[in-house]
Simulated scan of single mutants.
Amino acid sequence: MDFCDKAVFELQKERPIFHSEDDLKLALALKIKEQNPKFEIRLERPIELEMIIRTGGTKIVRAPIDIIVIDENGGIYPIELKYKTKKACIPYNEEKYILAEHGATDTGRFSFRKDIFRIENFKSKNLNYKCGYVLILTNDKSYFEKNVFEKDNLDKHFSFHDGMLLNRSDLSWNYNKLDKTKFILKDDNILYDINSKMHWTCNSEYFYKLDLLKDYQITWNDFSKFEKTNFKYCLIKIEI
């Protein structure tokens, strides 16, 4: 069990629920530091990455990595995390946890793949990179139970349900699912509606092409259980 696995394992005992993604981020960083006093921790460290646009070309994007861990030898371990919740009000340990309804699981699935892409590409700019991690913690069973690939959803190629093999090739959004009388794919490979307005998947970050360097086997594990909601997590270790 490496340091990130160990930190998540210990958090299960001490913090089975979090108020927000920032709450989870801080708790994980503190636990890693507690278990590894010689490690240095950085939060929200900005980096510049070259993102690939589906129509061709690239774009330099400046964005933060959630957690950077630096070991005593200068080795670097970037961590990206997501905390996706269904609406709930859960009392625990004399605190009330009022969880937001995040929804938008289609963009959540895309963003999970994007986090893996970002960590893989972080390596190319950091000679001291050792390995990286992508962690998602959620009580939304749509992520771990729902096989949107079999349902032929718009986001079918971004499904990362339990047992899924996440393919290294980005097959894009499943535009075959859309009503052909309402949307048309024009010569610029951008999808427009009948009013010549771009489909939301063709805007900004959702139009990046996210080919990965390898396939990833997806496994979900129990994190915590409450009366009306269960939390599961998926932790991907990125070794290239």
Results as ranks from 00 to 15, higher is better:
residue 25 K to E: 14
residue 25 K to R: 13
residue 25 K to W: 05
residue 25 K to N: 09
residue 26 L to S: 08
residue 26 L to R: 07
residue 27 A to K: 07
residue 27 A to H: 09
residue 27 A to C: 07
residue 28 L to M: 11
residue 28 L to W: 07
residue 28 L to P: 04
residue 28 L to T: 04
residue 29 A to R: 05
residue 29 A to D: 02
residue 30 L to Q: 08
residue 30 L to T: 08
residue 30 L to A: 10
residue 31 K to S: 08
residue 31 K to V: 09
residue 31 K to W: 07
residue 31 K to Y: 08
residue 31 K to T: 04
residue 32 I to H: 11
residue 32 I to C: 07
residue 33 K to S: 06
residue 33 K to P: 01
residue 34 E to H: 07
residue 34 E to A: 12
residue 34 E to C: 06
residue 34 E to V: 06
residue 34 E to D: 10
residue 35 Q to Y: 12
residue 35 Q to E: 14
residue 35 Q to K: 12
residue 35 Q to L: 11
residue 36 N to P: 01
residue 37 P to G: 04
residue 37 P to T: 01
residue 37 P to D: 01
residue 37 P to M: 03
residue 38 K to Y: 05
residue 38 K to G: 02
residue 38 K to C: 01
residue 39 F to D: 01
residue 39 F to H: 04
residue 40 E to M: 04
residue 40 E to L: 05
residue 40 E to I: 02
residue 41 I to Q: 05
residue 41 I to R: 03
residue 41 I to H: 02
residue 41 I to G: 02
residue 42 R to L: 09
residue 42 R to N: 10
residue 42 R to H: 07
residue 43 L to H: 10
residue 43 L to N: 08
residue 43 L to W: 07
residue 43 L to G: 06
residue 44 E to L: 13
residue 44 E to K: 14
residue 44 E to M: 15
residue 45 R to Q: 11
residue 45 R to A: 13
residue 45 R to C: 06
residue 46 P to L: 09
residue 46 P to F: 13
residue 47 I to S: 05
residue 47 I to E: 11
residue 48 E to R: 15
residue 49 L to K: 12
residue 50 E to H: 14
residue 50 E to T: 14
residue 50 E to V: 15
residue 50 E to I: 15
residue 50 E to L: 15
residue 50 E to P: 15
residue 50 E to N: 15
residue 51 M to S: 13
residue 51 M to L: 06
residue 51 M to T: 07
residue 52 I to R: 11
residue 52 I to H: 08
residue 53 I to D: 06
residue 53 I to W: 09
residue 53 I to N: 14
residue 53 I to R: 06
residue 54 R to W: 02
residue 54 R to S: 01
residue 55 T to F: 01
residue 56 G to N: 03
residue 56 G to P: 02
residue 56 G to L: 03
residue 56 G to S: 01
residue 56 G to Y: 01
residue 57 G to Q: 12
residue 58 T to F: 14
residue 58 T to N: 15
residue 59 K to Q: 12
residue 59 K to M: 10
residue 60 I to V: 15
residue 60 I to A: 14
residue 60 I to F: 13
residue 60 I to Q: 14
residue 60 I to P: 10
residue 60 I to E: 14
residue 61 V to N: 01
residue 61 V to A: 09
residue 61 V to T: 05
residue 61 V to K: 10
residue 62 R to V: 11
residue 62 R to M: 10
residue 62 R to G: 12
residue 63 A to T: 15
residue 64 P to M: 03
residue 64 P to Q: 02
residue 65 I to F: 03
residue 65 I to W: 00
residue 66 D to I: 02
residue 66 D to V: 01
residue 67 I to Q: 00
residue 67 I to K: 00
residue 67 I to S: 03
residue 67 I to N: 00
residue 67 I to Y: 00
residue 68 I to G: 00
